[in-house]
Design a protein around this nucleic acid. Structure first.
Lengths: 249, 249
DNA sequence: CGTTTGGTTGAAATGTGTCAAACTTTGTGG
DNA sequence: CCACAAAGTTTGACACATTTCAACCAAACG
């Protein structure tokens, strides 16, 4: 769909930033020059943990992560999912101690970037600094929507809402088509994201399937009727703050 | 406790920033020079609304606000409270369309600052820009904790948690002493913050009183046993990212 | 293939919501 | 300063969404 003027379109970080505003050649080059240590991390591994004091952040190059917190009695709450192009712990650039953990939901390719390099990039390229700040603000907007979702929507609508969010977010980075996407997430992980039990996730998914709002084949999710799912999920993508034309029609 | 070298300590914005790092005279002066339009706003008024495209942000000089979102069927979820020194819609500096509304819970003194003036301040004083970015990150951390709170804690502990958070946040800006604080918030407003019904808020508060964890006289909240309330709320103030010595012992 | 992991089902328990009424406090105008 | 209205709090009975527990089934995997 997009023209592909540079092979750099394959760099998830650049792709993500380009989805918001146009980078200058200079800025694009600075991003390409960012020293990044790439590692492949197995499924279900913590990348960073609550309490850590990291000296670097990381970008997701491929795969899915979840950002989560635990209660004292061991219950887990996922507060957001991470997809290619996201920098889930960018906050650690300013906040010394991590208040969240990030784990892989699938095998992931992760690019670690030292805070030093990020600071350097930000001071040299104020527009990139602004874009990073903006990214953390959009992340905050997602958290707010999740508070609403978990606090005020019933399980059925809550699930529909998260499925809508993932459709739009994955679409924006080219990981979803018009009909759905690949989401290799277990029902227990959904439960931790929605604040309900895995048993109830199962029942809600069955209901959504019975109502014709979703179809599942393995880890592939199909959305036969986007408008209906949107309605069920009370979903308005404004909070994702995408460019207008990134939104699903 | 703090020495009072400047009368500027009374400026809530400066006080807030000073609570994180030391401002230079130059920076302090720049903040004092910030053109700010001050307005007194009555109780229960929206200051900004979801969908707005504001050209200015605002600082809370006194009073309490709530930041909230609504579901399609009219249920409200408060996602955070705002206290003196906070800038609840600082995000609008980067995100054109507001995804939240902010309303007064009490009469408030509000200082409006144009985005233009804020941009100017940020480019002239990178450390203040960093401090603002950091502020929005701490706000994000609070949202995350609220997702956990609403998603994974029962009403009783959820309430205890929010009461702990307010104790620590208010203490940090001098609005709480060691024993408690003034919090003029109705039970219905608590309900919207906790994602439960106002009736259940009432029952939970009675239980907390019966258990000796809180005492209430009008809008004054007393905490007879901080450690016990902390335990009940599963509260660890790390996510507020205060300076070490700001934490309640 | 057997073992593990994840999905599905049913029945009983429970936290929380809803509704409606009574009570109490707060604010205000006569 | 009283009287009344408005707003907020408290109570009880009942409904219901969701949890828990336990068992069973299906799919993935080495």
């Amino acid at each position: 769909m997009l023209p592909a003027p540079f092979p750099t379109d394959h760099h998830p970080l650049i792709r993500k930033l380009e989805s918001i505003f146009s980078l200058t050649d200079d800025e694009r080059q600075a991003l390409l020059d960012l020293p990044m240590q790439v590692a492949v991390i197995k499924q279900d591994q913590d990348i960073v943990r609550e309490g850590d004091r990291p000296s670097r952040s990381f970008a997701i190059l491929s795969g899915f992560t979840c950002t989560y917190k635990m209660t004292g009695d061991g219950k887990r709450q996922i507060v957001t999912f991470g997809v290619a192009g996201d920098i889930p712990d960018l906050q650690s650039l300013h906040l010394k101690v991590l208040d969240i953990s990030v784990a892989t939901l699938t095998p992931c390719s992760i690019g670690f970037i030292t805070h030093e390099a990020l600071w350097d990039l930000c001071t040299r390229h104020p527009r990139i600094a602004a874009a990073f700040w903006r990214e953390t603000l959009v992340e905050g907007a997602i958290f707010r929507e999740w508070v609403l979702n978990v606090g005020r929507r019933e399980a059925y609508n809550r699930m529909a809402h998260v499925l809508c969010e993932m459709q739009v977010r994955l679409r924006a980075v080219g990981l979803a088509d018009d009909h759905g996407y690949e989401l290799p997430i277990t029902q227990t992980e959904f439960a931790d994201a929605l604040g309900i039990s895995n048993v109830h996730v199962n029942r809600v998914l069955q209901q959504l399937r019975a109502d014709g709002l979703i179809e599942t084949k393995g880890s592939r999710l199909n959305i036969p009727d986007w408008e209906q799912l949107k309605t069920a999920g009370d979903f308005d993508p404004t909070y994702l703050h995408l460019k207008q034309d990134e939104a699903v029609s």
